[in-house]
Design a protein around this nucleic acid. Sequence first.
RNA 1: GCCCGUGUAGCUCAGUUGGCCAGAGCAGCCGCCUUGUAAGCGGCAGGUCGUGGGUUCGAUUCCCACCGCGGGCUCCA
Length: 672
Amino acid sequence: MADIDITLPDGSERSVPAGTTVVGLAASIGSRLAKDAVIGVVNGTERDLNWVLEAGDKVEIVTASSERGLYTIRHSTTHVMAQAVLELFPGATFAIGPPVEDGFYYDFELAPGPDGKPATFVPEDLERIEARMREILAESQPFVRDEIPDDEARRVFAGHRFKLEIIDGEADDPTSATASGLVRTYENPPSQPWAEPAFAGYPGFIDLCRGPHVPDTGRFLGHFKLMRIAGAYWRGDEHKPMLQRIYGTAWASKKDLEAHLHRLEEAAKRDHRKLANELDLLSFPEELGGGLAVWHPKGGIVRKLMEDYSRERHASGGYEFVYTPNIANGKLFEASGHLGFYKDGMYPPMEMDNGEYYPKPMNCPGHNLIFDARQRSYRELPLRLFELGTVYRYEKSGTLHGLMRIRGFTQDDSHIYCTPEQAHDEIRSLLGFVLSVLRAFGFEDFDASLSTRPAKAETVGTDEGWAEATANLRSALEAEGLEFDVDEGGGAFYGPKIDVKVRDAIGRSWQLSTIQYDFNMAARMGLEYVGEDGGRHTPIMLHRALFGSVERFFGVLLEHYAGAFPTWLAPVQVRVLPVRDDHNGYAREVVAELAALGIRADGVDASEKLGNRIRKGKGEKIPYILVVGDDDVASRTAGVNPRGGEVERDVPIDQFAQRVVDEVHHQVNVAR
RNA sequence: GCCCGUGUAGCUCAGUUGGCCAGAGCAGCCGCCUUGUAAGCGGCAGGUCGUGGGUUCGAUUCCCACCGCGGGCUCCA
């Protein structure tokens, strides 16, 4: 047979016999590669290992350790899970099951129970399903690719209504492909035909799928765990039936799986709700109502420090401080457009003698009234109004989540009014300001998303206006060198926006700051300035929140530092422990001396063993614990036990104090 | 809002297959100990077992509803 030439990723050419498959090519390169190969990428398209190559193909061999290989493993694992579920639950049907970050899921609908509603999984089902999956793996069932005509597919998948919707093109399934009257399928022939066949003409499991897959269930799969059961709407639509989703995680090796499970445990230890409780920072009393928090003294001081720092930066950044009330007449929110576009997110109104009053969901309408309080000149622009404004939003009960998603929160909110000519530079400097403040809190790794015009805003503004605003935002992102993705249709009703995200100490991404372009609300509310030409013009308005929500930012900081706030933010910076009763007096003197320098210090008398008092201080994650005994009283020193560091003896108090003062002054952000 | 799970002392958790005064550790308070770098000892106090109904001679335990919380979906700072 004639040889054909194949191009490899490094540009080199390789001659193989005609009819060679992806795995055959891998074998010709090396037996190790053939063993590790999961799929191939042929001319840019992912293909199964038994895909037959043609002359001139560009081929890359994908192994399990790569992103694409892992994705394939997860994708194949979810097919195995679907097979197990359909076998174990007669009458069950399935919807979609893609790989996702760290794992996979599949959505199912079970046969109706006694109440006539589809049955639901119970946690013990996961063990049964997992056990059946392992049996399927042991059978080494091949993944058999095929393409069948639509009408035949409709017969095969008769009784599987979600699949029929996919075949008909009504529903989108990211992993299946239907084109020109053909649908692609993957079948897993079982060793024994199913007792109750679910697919006409097939002995076992088959799914709509564009693939590719691992060659058979006996290879690469195995390192998985079913994690949880969740509800999920069919096609993500709350008006459509709720399906039962099973989430799983899958990895290329046992080691990777265990590492992933370990990461989850580490993240759970950092949970801000747990830490907030343990460190006595704040709480969510049931009596208050869902999504509302009270701040205890230790959380309160951290929040105050965050807010103080924010105010300092805004003061030096050319912002002016304003205050607006928490409730406002509904007419204001009609004028601003909030009642038209945002009513679902607002608390219901209070009836008052001269109208309906709503808790404010955003600060912008109030700030606009300040702008509009007198005639404005172009000479005043950009006018930057800043407020730590508390807003209330009616969030659905099921969406509340600690500090990250609450109903009452405070935005470090700013509205900037500028001329269209100023908008570009203003956005750019805003972005720099935002990043600079975030860096001060110890975040180093940023990216962003650019959100464009949403469907609900099709009546707001002009196409050109949206395009120009979006271009302005994009150019600021590019100028700042920030990586960003584009969220099509994710903008606010009044304009497109940039959301800045930070990566925390364990690599998780959090959305914090937002910069929103608004060419709509100023006009709606009749805001004008007198330009150089003497004419009246509508200003461009920029909405900007830096922390986003003070509460949420606090929660992110808490998780980022795992409760061990850097010294400048720590509720208690220094704890002084006398060794014996007769050192209590000296310990109090040391506390007073430190406090006089603005250091947050406290002491615990010697009523318990020293070791236990140190242990408690460590549990509170205090940056410095000082121990004072006979030698220290004599020479005005202390033993210094720093968080995460080595004990130092005989440190002069004034020297230690200077060290803390410097550390606070420079806002050293060390997560020890 | 919808699906699943869950709710015992301030915290972490036992326990009751329906039945005497519901338990432990930590935290708190009181005493003893007088202590040099991550748990010294003893005692006291603390719970209408989330709330409200129902079944029962009897419910914290079984059933129902509601509320809170957790994980998802939708939505979002």
